[in-house]
Design a protein around this nucleic acid. Sequence first.
DNA 1: TTGAAAGCGCTAACAG
DNA 2: CTGTTAGCGCTTTCAA
Lengths: 330, 330
Amino acid sequence: MAITMKDVAEKAGVSIKTVSRVVNNQGEISAETRQRIEAIIAELGYRPNLVARSLITQRTLTIGLIVVDITNPFFAEVARGVQDVARQNGYNVLLCNIDDNLHEQQKALESLAAHSVDGIILFPLEYYDDRLLSFVNQYRPVVLINHLLQHPNVAVVLLDGAHGVQQAVNHLLERGHQEIAMLAGPKPITGRGQRLQGYQTALQGQGLADSANRVIFSIPTQAQGYEQSKQLLSQHPHITAIIAYNDLLAFGVIQACRELNIVIPDQCAIVGFDDIYFSNLVHPALSTVRVNKYEVGQQAMTRLLTMINDPKLTISPIKLGVELIVRESS
Amino acid sequence: MAITMKDVAEKAGVSIKTVSRVVNNQGEISAETRQRIEAIIAELGYRPNLVARSLITQRTLTIGLIVVDITNPFFAEVARGVQDVARQNGYNVLLCNIDDNLHEQQKALESLAAHSVDGIILFPLEYYDDRLLSFVNQYRPVVLINHLLQHPNVAVVLLDGAHGVQQAVNHLLERGHQEIAMLAGPKPITGRGQRLQGYQTALQGQGLADSANRVIFSIPTQAQGYEQSKQLLSQHPHITAIIAYNDLLAFGVIQACRELNIVIPDQCAIVGFDDIYFSNLVHPALSTVRVNKYEVGQQAMTRLLTMINDPKLTISPIKLGVELIVRESS
DNA sequence: TTGAAAGCGCTAACAG
DNA sequence: CTGTTAGCGCTTTCAA
């Protein structure tokens, strides 16, 4: 059994409340008593039990962060941004991976709420889910990244995916590409998703009809990028450029091109999305749309703290800019 | 205010304990009552308050994981292994980054203990720290990764760093390299560290004296790998091979070679350590010592669970094997 | 400047 | 099969 406040109080010959006062730095105590108790605390190695405290204060000093997969450097950087500002503010973070699984997303939300985290940051799967809405109706606060939801209990941090992909497509068009395919990532149950929208808008702007067969949905992993693009490039050799939903997919495209002896960027240009750390190290170095991942995390956590500290505040969405980075693959 | 057990009990016209029984699936209850209460729980959206439960059961169903930096794919994969096993067993994980900061390591340990996590997995910095020992004297259980500490409160998961680097050096020797430098990572305050030891052992085995100036200590990041190897290769042009403490450092070496127009592997061979996901994607593809990172995480969490469930158990260290992967850089 | 008592939401032991 | 009582370790009134 760990040392409790009672142990300290008994040893010091004072009441429990007096110990509580020194632990919490509430003045109203004589310097002499304070020092004596501090000495005993150090001697006994007493550590306040935060779960007992939480039960009263209704605060755990813990927040939850839900991402698809921490192994994807994109999420790792976002997580780092979240954690750094959390730590600076005395918060710890519970991290959950949900992969491509809506059910796990829901379970993670419930589990975090049951643990009484003071708030949740969710990078949701792109599938539509009304359970998210009903969750948010009875839990607060949550910050959603890359997903717009107007609700008093939620704040939103957006990435300008549409604009990013538009830039990428325009860049490819300028280089003379006409047949530009897109590996569009997970297929939303409803709507199109920002990035796909950017792709289609840009093509339409040039009077180029977007034919559906040039858009392929898949889980955004390197393995899928490899599989899908290999098939795509074999079946449609006239394709000269591929835009990927994220860099991992793009890495898969590079791999496929290498195997098919397709020269990058001459025979096939590639543009990714995210600009993860390693995009600059692969060969050829990947052109991509840069997202300031660390800042996304910081912004999300900052907003969450604001909502925690002022329960009735409504926070308007913020949209973070993105930037096309042209390297060797396009 | 959230819905409590009392609310449910009142609405159902039963005692609090009865509600507790259905929540915890303790039999001894009539099917009729159970269903009625379950309906009310669903209707009210009641969620058990785990912090209240923890106060009694002395279990939070939460563990702490402390790593240097989740942004390093090595740690991300380990973390994934930990988290998957944790989740399968109903546990959540609090993740802390400590960078290269012993003070943060200590703070993280204290903070996790204060939050009453059921156990801690620590990937410690390689510096010697007697505070770790005194922490472990009064907290249990902890699992240490890549650090041997004999203590009843700790279990240990080791990587065979010495053997891995030995393999790497021998491989380079077989290819005719005589001047092999090592970017040895963080300098331990005491001892040499496993990987450096492997380096020196292998060289001595060949009668090659290890001259100290071929060993360079630094934080194991790409930036440091770049800086240190650039200087090293400029000052000692006779060096024909470099072993790096981890893949990130090795990426920096690749970068430096590219800038100095040194051809890899002809003029300078490079071997890394970890085999992070991207080592196979950089150019030239990196030869490295593979660690099964996911398994490291799984093993660590499994051991932690064992210790949590049987408080008096002592667990003997496990050493996981490593494997030299020869690619293009050597 | 200090203490006593109540209670956060739940479980555990024991009755009924 | 169900209820009552006590109390986990702490903070928060309110008194002294």
